[in-house]
């Protein structure tokens, strides 16, 4: 294992976060606060409680997941796309590193950033609504697992994309709708029965549901199913990344 290389990539990627502190931290916090104002105040005035939980508190896990997913994907995809775009990727490809080391470095740094961000948003939420976390250890576990999984997913997008439009395509076209329709801001029990069934095919539902369970001890789907679904998605992403390096997909001709 080339630990020095993992460290070098990780530190280098994290230093980019420090350089772009404003975009990396301030803007997600600001947009989350806006969600609170719009959803919590405007809608919350009409819906007092969901499943016995104050609506403002109810949306906190969903909001954190929304940010976590979007930022894991954008951090990781940009992190690997940028060297490809400016050409500095040659150095990584000519270095004595294997795919695992590259992925740990890049996706690890992206996941770290979104975990930090998730925690900042949790703290921000605390300013708006009362919060009590039922299972703090599992909450952190979900946070980490989701951040890692979607950083891998972002890494895949970053390698696949060969222009900036493609880099935005999947997050805009697929991920954001899935998050909004995955029960981030409502319980699926509030939907008509047909739509409840449709929603069960949305992988984000399992993330949000499991994460919400760690806060309130109750959820739309069982926490075990949630964990299994995240595990499956994690494995799928890892297999794709492994295949990409094995075949040199869009990296080596």
């Amino acid at each position: 294992m080339n630990l020095q290389a993992i460290k070098a990539i990780y530190v280098y990627e994290m230093s980019r976060m420090r350089r772009t502190l404003l975009q990396s931290i301030v803007s997600p916090v600001l947009s989350t606060s806006l969600y609170f104002v719009v959803f919590g105040t405007a809608i919350g005035a009409r819906i007092e409680t969901v499943e016995g939980i104050h609506y403002g508190s109810f949306i906190v896990p969903g909001l954190i997941m929304l940010t976590l997913l979007q930022n894991s994907i954008s951090n990781a995809s940009f992190g690997i796309y940028f060297p490809k775009f400016v050409g500095t990727i040659y150095e990584v490809l000519s270095a004595p590193v294997n795919f695992l080391e590259i992925v740990i470095g890049y996706a690890g740094a992206a996941a770290t950033k979104s975990i930090i961000l998730g925690l900042i948003i949790l703290a921000t939420a605390h300013l708006f609504v009362p919060l009590h976390i039922e299972h703090p250890v599992l909450m952190v576990f979900f946070l980490v697992l989701t951040a890692v999984t979607f950083s891998l997913f972002g890494f895949i997008i970053g390698i696949w994309a060969d222009n900036f439009e493609k880099l935005q395509l999947i997050p805009m076209l697929i991920v954001t709708p899935l998050v909004f329709l995955g029960g981030s801001f409502y319980s699926i029990e509030m939907l008509p029965e047909t739509w409840q069934t449709v929603t069960l095919f949305n992988p984000v539902l399992y993330l949000v549901s499991g994460f919400r369970w760690s806060f309130f001890g109750q959820s739309d789907v069982s926490v075990h199913v949630s964990l299994i679904m995240i595990g499956v998605f994690l494995l799928a992403c890892m297999s794709i990344v492994w295949w990409m390096f094995k075949t040199g997909y869009k990296l080596r001709t």
């Binding site: 050409g87 270095a95 590193v97």
Partner: peptide, 24 residues
């Protein structure tokens, strides 16, 4: 390499230190 591939926003020191680490 032939082309000038550089991390435009990085400092000289950081980019050289990074390369050393990358090569283990």
């Amino acid at each position: 390499p032939q082309e000038l591939h550089v991390e435009t926003f990085e400092s000289v020191w950081n980019t050289v230190t990074f390369s050393r680490g990358l090569f283990g």
